[in-house]
């Protein structure tokens, strides 16, 4: 990679772009489809935050585990969960990765190290300590990452887990996706000291804040933090300052946002645009390479939606399967 001025090979740059584009299209399409009324439950869209999941997950393999949030589609896609199975799950169909019984906030795929989206704020943090402990016992160099928002960062579970990870020196990384809002409450209102690095310091963990709309910033920082954890260096915190393009959930009127905020973010803080501009200007990737990926991803999402719509619902007999009790 001597002539490549980026920290990733050309192929990996294209993979990163494909992942971010897949998440973006997945979410933009759900925004349209949800309004039609045939998707059960709530969906929380990750559009705008793609560089966080992608910049981090590029460093992981299937032995590494993640615990996600209510806004989990991006984490799933970046961790390698199948897009068709995800779409099936969101439509509540038998073809979904949890056979349609979970929906958007419970997508999980243990074969990919994806321990689950989670409807309970801060609930991923204790889970990932368990995964981190297991990895430490196995000694396989695996790491665990839990994602949580600026709002969930105030949950006791998150703080307790930081303490646990610190005393057991677990290979666990706490990722705060700070998009400025918890539902309609701004981070300035809800958080006494709005640097999450200070929180980490309270437990003796190093913390790093990066611009979460810059793929390379996330990629570099996550790479060093994950490497450190794999080598036994212990837990750390990564704060990604990011933006959410849509409302908290689909149907949110977003009256708490400043006028023009979404437009400004889409124009100036779009991680996909920033990434595309950088790699093409440096001459490593051509516009045509990105356009080809755009077309392939569009076709993939089309097909995932069509397939999910046409798939069967789980049958009544499925009610008593996949539970801890045998009937």
């Amino acid at each position: 990679m001597t002539n490549n001025p980026f920290p990733l090979s050309r192929d990996d740059l294209l993979t990163a772009y494909r992942t971010m584009r897949t998440i973006r299209d997945f979410e933009e399409r759900l925004h349209v489809e949800f309004a039609k009324g045939d998707i059960p439950g709530f969906v929380h869209l990750y559009a705008g935050e793609e560089a966080c999941a992608t910049g981090i997950m590029m460093h992981l393999t299937d032995i590494d585990r993640i615990a996600s949030t209510h806004r989990g589609h991006g984490h799933c896609i970046a961790k390698g969960v199948d897009v068709h199975e995800m779409m099936g799950e969101i439509y509540g169909k038998a073809t979904g990765c949890c056979r349609g019984k979970g929906g958007s906030m419970h997508i999980a795929d243990l074969s990919k190290g994806m321990m689950g989206a989670n409807g309970i704020l801060g609930a991923g943090a204790p889970l990932i300590c368990g995964a981190g402990l297991a990895a430490k016992f196995r000694g396989d160099g695996g790491v665990g990452l839990t994602f949580f928002g600026d709002g969930a960062a105030n949950q006791g579970t998150v703080l307790e887990s930081m303490n646990l990870a610190a005393i057991w020196n677990l290979p666990v990384i706490f990722v705060v996706e700070n998009n400025g809002y918890a539902e309609s409450t701004s981070v300035e209102y809800a958080t006494a000291v709005d640097s999450y690095v200070d929180r980490a310091a309270g437990f003796g963990l190093p913390g790093v804040t990066v611009d979460g709309t810059d793929f390379f910033a996330v990629y570099e920082a996550a790479g060093e933090i994950i490497k450190r954890a794999r080598e036994g260096g212990g837990p750390a915190l990564l704060e990604c300052k990011t933006v959410r393009f849509f409302g908290h959930f689909e149907g949110d009127a977003q009256t708490y946002k400043a006028k023009g905020e979404n437009e400004h973010n889409r124009a100036h803080r779009d991680c996909l645009k920033l990434f595309g501009a950088r790699v093409t200007a440096a001459g490593i990737v051509a516009d045509a390479d990105l356009a080809l990926i755009d077309r392939e991803v569009a076709a993939l999402i089309d097909d995932a939606v069509e397939t999910a719509k046409g798939a069967p619902l789980p049958g009544p007999r499925e009610l008593t399967t996949d539970v801890y009790v045998s009937y």
Partner: peptide, 12 residues
């Protein structure tokens, strides 16, 4: 708040 807390031993 930057990466030097991990790649070096910078304080916060």
């Amino acid at each position: 708040r930057d990466i030097r807390r991990v790649v070096a031993s910078a304080n916060s």
